[in-house]
Nucleic acid binder design. Structure first.
Length: 598
RNA sequence: GCUUACGUGGCUCAGUGGUAGAGCACUUCCUUGGUAAGGAAGAGGUCACGGGUUCAAUUCCCGUCGUAAGCUCCA
């Protein structure tokens, strides 16, 4: 605990030192906020002239000089008038704005300032005693980026400088090395290296093309999910990507999501009565599934009804947020909707969580966490953001929470992140670059079925509205595969691997035997290839290792004579020899059981 | 959408005010090699696109498109 406090002080103090150095290089620049963050700190500026990463060396040098100077952090508390006068004298309009707010909205008596050397900053602290308490080699400037003042896009864009900082030089080194190592797993890089997907300007940004190798991974995931869904008694349906806009007026989605949809297509079909029909690419599948529910009369005996579809949806995501497969404009969702009665909610939600557990366990995924997003009754914009039905919010949240507790999966709660129609459980993960993304999202919907007039006939012959659980354990193919690429660093387990077996003939004499092998494996639907290139044997080992092929079969005279194979698995030094039959049985077993090892 | 940077053969990148280069990949030939690059030859680029400055622009300037990091957004 103490060390953490110390680290916090170091990062906080370094933020001041950074600002101090930046003001030396760009005098007259204005200060924003400069807090400690995970792995370091940042500081926001309005600069008199842009800074570039080339300037980092100079700034770091100045920061080190300040550290060596043993400047003492002196605390000073100022009342409103003095504080405002001080900030005025400092010429810091943004700090002034914030100070005013602190005094007026939060009724503070005084504000704290810290002075070190010639530099003064309004700040709560705490700081290290003096700058010499910081190891001069324990920080490194990372990047320069834009950030809105106070996080609002209505405000001015400031320049943010990010930095890493730790207690020791060694920790910094370790962290930077780990980060650089992580970047090698970036799905955009591996997607190219391993021919998984391609994004083409002439198709459009955020609209990835899945190459043969990437499509194998999608298909295998889809097969996996289909099996799980079959076992949990989901029924598959197929619905179109295009729909009339009116559908979303009726569901109530339109006011919330019009901005996130592609522009409407005006179809001039019935112009005689002065009407056009507007069509739009669907941004979600739910209303289509609701319409399938509504295609006939339903009885309470039919519930729960579970409709599943790997459905394509399109969202007009802002250009600047698009990134590889992680943020796209066209995506394919592992979607399903469960229509159930109130007393079935908990059990169904629990089953959904259990399916998540199976999926994530099978894939060996551990670096994610769960978040229960609830309605925020205090949100001033709550009436616009959420369906106005406090009782329904409370009761559905309780049911979801109860199911989560029963599932035994750890989760935390966040107010104000719910969907407009109900509470939500998200599975969150971090990309190699440290950005947080949602990998799976599940909601309990108490509002839209009613708006669409969905009903079932209950025991008492009354028409009742079903609840709807939206679930997508494997999220979208795009984001989920991106996550898997980074998770496996491109070295997929055999069942997922685009090429499962690569045969490396040592010489041309054994080609007949190799072809027998290929035929036997293909009869079992194994994705097998043979490397008949003119390359040397060494080169073949290298090339196929770099492709992260999970199983390489070395076939020479010895193997051909004995009817055996020598198996070299990805990332494993030792090799094993098996009879042809033994190998095929073992391989089929691994594929069938979806084992994690290659 | 915003801030900053970047855009040179399929990939990774060098370079220049006088219309381009490397390595890998690719093609052909030689080599049939037992565990991470065998050898040789060859083909491949309107230097993202549009405009401007200039005798001359891939290089300088402006715009557009695209990409990256971050911010905003993220059903």
């Amino acid at each position: 605990m103490e060390t953490n406090d110390n680290l916090y002080k170091i990062r906080h103090s370094l933020a001041h030192i950074l600002a101090q150095a930046v003001l030396e290089v760009r005098p007259g620049s204005k200060l924003g906020f400069g807090p400690p963050i995970e792995n370091g700190f940042y500081y926001d500026f309005i600069l008199t002239e842009p800074l570039h990463e080339d300037d980092f060396k100079d700034i770091e040098k100045r920061m080190k000089a300040i550290i060596k100077n043993k400047q003492v952090f002196e605390k000073e508390d100022l009342k409103f008038d003095d504080a405002m006068a001080r900030l005025e004298a400092m010429g810091e309009p943004y700090k002034q704005e914030y100070a005013k707010e602190l005094f007026e909205k939060h009724n503070l008596e005084y504000l704290t300032f810290f002075k070190n050397g010639s530099f003064v900053d309004m700040c709560e602290g705490p700081h290290v005693e003096n700058t010499k308490k910081i190891h001069p080699g324990c920080f490194k400037l990372k990047s320069v980026a834009g950030a809105y003042w106070r996080g609002s896009s209505d405000n001015q864009m400031m320049t943010r400088i990010y930095a890493w900082a730790f207690e020791t030089k060694e920790e910094l080194k370790e962290h930077v090395a780990a980060y650089q190592e992580a970047l090698k797993r970036d799905h955009k890089k591996l997607g190219k290296d391993l021919d998984l997907f391609h994004i083409d300007d002439e198709i459009g940004k955020g609209l990835p093309l899945w190459l043969p190798n990437g499509t194998v991974i999608r298909d295998e995931l889809e097969k996996f999910m289909r099996e799980l869904e079959f076992k949990d008694r989901f029924q598959r349906i197929t619905t179109p990507c295009l729909t009339k806009v009116q559908l979303y007026e009726k569901t109530g989605h339109l006011p919330y999501y019009a901005e996130g949809m592609f522009p409407f297509m005006e179809v001039k079909e019935n112009e005689q009565d002065g009407h056009h029909t507007n069509y739009v690419l669907r941004p979600m599948n739910c209303p289509h599934h609701h319409k399938v529910f509504d295609s006939r009369k339903r009885s309470y005996r039919d519930l729960p009804i579970r409709f599943a579809e790997y459905g394509n949806v399109f969202r007009y995501e802002s250009a600047g947020s698009l990134s590889g497969l992680l943020r796209v404009r066209g995506m394919c969702m592992n979607d399903a909707h469960i229509y159930c009665a109130e007393d079935q909610i908990e059990e169904e939600f629990l089953k959904v969580m259990k399916m998540h557990e199976t999926v994530y366990h099978t894939l060996g995924l551990h670096n994610f966490w769960m978040r229960l997003s609830t309605w925020d009754p205090e949100d001033p914009k709550g009436k616009e953001k959420y369906v106005d039905d406090p009782a329904a919010w409370e009761s559905t949240q309780d049911k979801v929470r109860a199911a989560m507790v029963k599932s035994g999966l750890p989760f935390n709660e966040v107010k104000g992140e719910a969907a407009f129609y109900g509470p939500k459980i998200d599975f969150q993960m971090k990309t190699v670059t440290g950005r947080e993304e949602t990998i799976s999202t599940n909601q309990l919907d108490f509002a839209v079925p009613e708006r669409l007039g969905l009903t079932y006939t209950d025991k008492d012959n009354e028409q009742k509205t079903p609840y709807c659980i939206h679930r997508a354990p494997a999220g979208t193919h795009e984001r989920f595969v991106a996550f898997l690429i980074e998770h496996f660093a491109g070295a997929f387990p055999t069942w997922l691997a685009p090429v499962q077996v690569m045969i490396l003939p040592v010489s041309e004499n054994v080609l007949d035997y190799c072809n027998d092998l290929i035929e036997a494996l293909r009869d079992s639907f194994v994705r097998v290839e043979i490397d008949t290139s003119n390359d040397s044997f060494n080169k073949k080992i290298r090339t196929n290792s770099k492709k992260r092929i999970p199983n390489m079969l070395i076939i020479g005279d010895k193997e051909a004579e004995e009817g055996t194979v020598t198996l070299k698995r990805y990332g494993i030094q030792e090799q094993d020899q098996f009879s042809k039959e033994e190998f095929i049985t073992m391989l089929m077993d691994k594929i069938k059981n979806r084992t994690l090892e290659s």
